[in-house]
Design a protein around this nucleic acid. Structure first.
Lengths: 230, 230
DNA sequence: CTATGTATGTCGCCA
DNA sequence: TGGCGACGTACATAG
């Protein structure tokens, strides 16, 4: 990995065009050819970048560029597309390279899996008289998060951390399919999420899908209380 | 901005828990307290990070940590939440700080907003005899990008840079809703994008939605020519 | 400030 | 390889 602090201007041309005026920034060049341009603020997203795999060519400025005080021109090209990043460097303040090796990576402790487990254990949150049939019920177009038996018949549950329209569409597709199965039909839908957006709620209710907002902390609390019994 | 190349292990605790084993990595500390942990591969996303505003506290290792060869412990805490990033440093290979100042920022060109403006001004690209009714026509499930009057009645346009299946789904929902309005009905659909994926085209045409591929550069050229008249 | 839609999204899974 | 869903999504903008 090469780290360069430079005064530079940058132009990106690819899926869109973007330009950055002359300023002092960090240029990070990774082993796989990726280039990241970071300023001293903002979140993890760089101001501009080139995704790997990519190759970088360093060239001298042309006459016009040299007059403008440009010392070096970096042209970064994506291998698989014609995306190009052009970095015009006026001054290099720092330049160092480092051998990092491959990273063992990140181990995550899941969230959605937890929510699904908790709702399975607390299936009565869907309403009185509900019983779990199974989690991850397979269908030809993907697994239904939770299938339950309710007072009025089978219930298919789509579970999200944040419920938006896409989730309602997903559940609608499952419902259409499940209702073709005479052993299951009629199957009604429940859209369960920690937060449901108004538009998603409107669409869901328009299609006869019930919305259930889940309180994760509360469910977690019940779970902890249950655990303490053993 | 401070740049540190260090052999370290990292633990994140917040909306989820995540852990990274001991390895050599780049630690970037920004002026606003943001911390980014990058390896020598991948795209612009760091392996782990803390979003600003945040504060970092450097402390000595406890006895147990010192035995494990840890020299320094960085505890990064988000200001607005209780998210925490804990970095255990075994060895520092490089450490430098740089004053960057505020960045003038990025100017983008060619996003959906630009396309929408250009298509509104060049509405005849939908076909002869089209007239703009309005942009961002509001509906209960969201705004329709462009509403126009065509030779056969009202036309609802969904605009994308890259036309994908979900865009067709979105337009379908709008059409269903708009066609319930007797003042507008019948409303036909046009799916307009710089690039339309084959599956999206198939789905759209199956639903009687017309597909229009837009040449942004060409539209931009016409726009520039128009501008020069004034 | 909240709500909502876009993104050069990126990333991982699975057929 | 391509489609699909999740993401500590981030981010800008409109209400």
């Amino acid at each position: 990995m090469r780290l360069v602090i430079a005064t530079c201007s940058v132009t990106y041309s690819g899926r869109l065009n973007a330009h950055m005026a002359l300023a002092k920034r960090l240029l990070m060049v990774k082993a796989d050819g990726a280039v990241l341009i970071h300023s001293d603020g903002g979140s993890y997203k760089p101001l501009n970048w080139m995704s790997p795999p990519a190759t970088m060519r360093v060239s001298a400025p042309d006459e016009h560029q040299a007059e403008a005080g440009i010392k070096e021109v970096w042209t970064v090209s994506a291998t698989k597309s014609d995306d190009t990043l052009k970095i015009l460097i006026s001054e290099i303040h720092h330049d160092s390279s480092h051998e990092l090796g491959t990273d063992p990576g990140l181990v995550k402790d899941g969230v959605e899996a937890d929510l699904q487990r908790l709702l399975s254990e607390q299936i009565e949150r869907l309403g009185d008289g509900h019983a779990l049939i199974r989690r991850e019920h397979p269908t030809p177009i993907g697994p239904v998060d939770i299938l339950a038996k309710g007072p009025q018949g089978t219930v298919a549950v789509e579970l999200k951390r944040r419920g938006d329209i896409d989730g309602v569409e997903q559940l609608s597709r499952y419902l259409e399919l499940l209702n073709r199965d005479p052993l299951l039909a009629p199957v009604s839908g429940v859209f369960a999420a920690q937060q449901i957006k108004p538009q998603a709620r409107t669409l869901a209710e328009d299609r006869g899908i019930r919305c259930v907002v889940l309180d994760y902390e509360e469910m977690k609390g019940v779970d902890d209380a249950d655990s303490r019994l053993f």
